[in-house]
Structures are given as structure tokens and as C-alpha cells.
């Protein structure tokens, strides 16, 4: 098995090496990838969407449908992990002996205090990253991950119950669904306003004091918020289920 594996790996590697021989040089400004589509995004982004961060405008608008689906991927993973691991019946819960509930000595005061201090600042920074994605590196995913990480940090520093007290299972599930619903809902609103799916320019009809270009900018902000909610909630959901084996007891 190992030998076959090695042969497959070497064959694949050689194939890929052969492919590289015809690649354009690394960082070549004249390569097709840099001359075919990207100049359009770079030069038109501000005119068409009023967003200086081109990554955000491509992510949220030009290829917004990809982004909606990747949010759905996170949602699918969250639901998949939840479906596989969550134990709801009492019979399942009794399978294994209960863990000892006593406080572990190494969970020192310093760790707890630092985690508790860090969490609000992380969350504040996450909100900044989400809201400022139009002008600086950042956006829904990055912000959502930081938000999720702040909860996971609390779960590691204290225990799972601490997090579950602040974010109940139902809240997490609802937020995860709400995030994807915001994104696809904005898309559907555009359809109802008789434009194509995710064509945010349609939103200028319902947003006050917005022209077509600014409507796109606001639309991107709206979907970024949805993305952030979905990513945060589903990461927490995945972590909580994985670390407690679906029993929601104390976690790691």
C-alpha cells in the first residue's frame, strides 16, 4: 500500500512539474491571469461599486454568488457536524461515565482573567473588520472568524458551559441560519425588484438616498454582515460539538 502510494505520489508530482514548465514566470505582470480579467476589476471597481478594496468588491459583488455558496458550505458543515454528533436522547448521554466535574488546578486565574479581558476587545475588533471591509483588508469572513474565535477562546479558557450560557445552542443555530438567509434574502429581494439575482443595484429603489452605485456598496455591506453571522455561529457550533462529543458538557 505504501509503495503504491509512493508511486502514485511521484507520478502526480512529475505530471505537475511538467505542467509548470509552460507556466508564465512567477509574479510576471504580463501573465494571462494578470492581463485578462483583473485589470477590469481593478479599474472599474470604484466606478461600478464604489468600493476601493477590490477583493471585497469581487467577493461581494462580481462573484457574489460564489460567496453565497461558500457561506452555504459553512452552514452545511455546521449542520453536518451537528447532525452527526449531537446527542439528544438520554440513552445516548448515559453511554459513557460522566466526567469529573471538579475544577482542574492548572486552569489558573491568570489564564481565565486574560481570556475574559481579551474577548470583548476581540469582538470589537471583529466588528471593525466587518464594517471596514470596503476600505481596508477585512470583510465578513475575517470578522466572522475573529468573532467565532473569541467564543472559542472563552471555551478553552473556562469551559463549555461558560460559552453556552452566553450563546445557547438555539441562538447559535438561529444565527447560523439567519446569516445565510440575510445573504440569499438580499439576492431574492433583487429578484423581486425585477433585476437579476444578487444585482444589488435594484436595492436603490428601496434604500433611501442611494443611487445605483451606492446601492451596490450597501448591498456588499449587507451580505458581509450575513457572512459574518453565519461564519461565527457555525464555527462555534462545530467547535462546541466536536470538543464535547455532542454532549455539551465541559469540553476540552
Amino acid at each position: 500500500m505504501k509503495l503504491i502510494g509512493l508511486i502514485v505520489v511521484i507520478a502526480t508530482g512529475l505530471l505537475l512539474l511538467w505542467g509548470v514548465t509552460d507556466f508564465p514566470d512567477w509574479a510576471d505582470p504580463q501573465s494571462p491571469a494578470s492581463t485578462h480579467l483583473s485589470p477590469h476589476f481593478l479599474t472599474e471597481s470604484i466606478e461600478e461599486t464604489a468600493v476601493p478594496n477590490v477583493v471585497t468588491s469581487v467577493l461581494g459583488d462580481y462573484r457574489g454568488f460564489d460567496t453565497m455558496l461558500e457561506t452555504t458550505v459553512v452552514f452545511a458543515a455546521g449542520i453536518a457536524v451537528y447532525t452527526l454528533l449531537r446527542r439528544s436522547r438520554r440513552k445516548d448521554l448515559r453511554e459513557k461515565p460522566e466526567m469529573i466535574e471538579e475544577e482542574l488546578p492548572h486552569q489558573a486565574l491568570i489564564v481565565k482573567t486574560i481570556c475574559r479581558l481579551m474577548a470583548p476587545f476581540m469582538q470589537l475588533y471583529a466588528l471593525y473588520v466587518i464594517a471596514h471591509g470596503h476600505h481596508s483588508p477585512g470583510g465578513g469572513f475575517q470578522g466572522g472568524v475573529i468573532l467565532g474565535a473569541s467564543f472559542i477562546l472563552l471555551a478553552i479558557g473556562f469551559d463549555l458551559k461558560m460559552v453556552l450560557k452566553r450563546m445557547r445552542e438555539k441562538t447559535t443555530l438561529v444565527l447560523g441560519i439567519l446569516g445565510v438567509l440575510i445573504f440569499s434574502g438580499i439576492g431574492m429581494v433583487c429578484v423581486l425588484l425585477e433585476k437579476n439575482f444578487l444585482d444589488y443595484s435594484a436595492l436603490s429603489a428601496i434604500l433611501p438616498a442611494t443611487d445605483i452605485i451606492m446601492a451596490r456598496s450597501h448591498g456588499i455591506l449587507g451580505v458581509e454582515i450575513g457572512v459574518a453571522l453565519a461564519v461565527m455561529a457555525n464555527l462555534v457550533l462545530i467547535y462546541v460539538n466536536l470538543s464535547s462529543d455532542g454532549k455539551y458538557e465541559r469540553g476540552l
Binding site: 491571469a33 483583473s38 477583493v55 469581487v58 460564489d66 460567496t67 452545511a76 453536518a80 457536524v81 469572513f141
Partner: peptide, 22 residues
């Protein structure tokens, strides 16, 4: 620099994290 690969990889990172979770 070309923004498109970065956008695509944001998607791919999310996909790989999700696969890892499952």
C-alpha cells in the same frame, strides 16, 4: 496585484475548514 485568486482562495479556505470539521 490580481484580486481574483485571493477571492477564490477565501472560498477554498472556507471549504477546507468545513471539510476538516465534518
Amino acid at each position: 496585484i490580481n484580486p481574483l485568486p485571493h477571492v477564490l482562495m477565501l472560498t477554498a479556505i472556507v471549504v477546507s475548514v468545513s471539510t476538516l470539521g465534518v
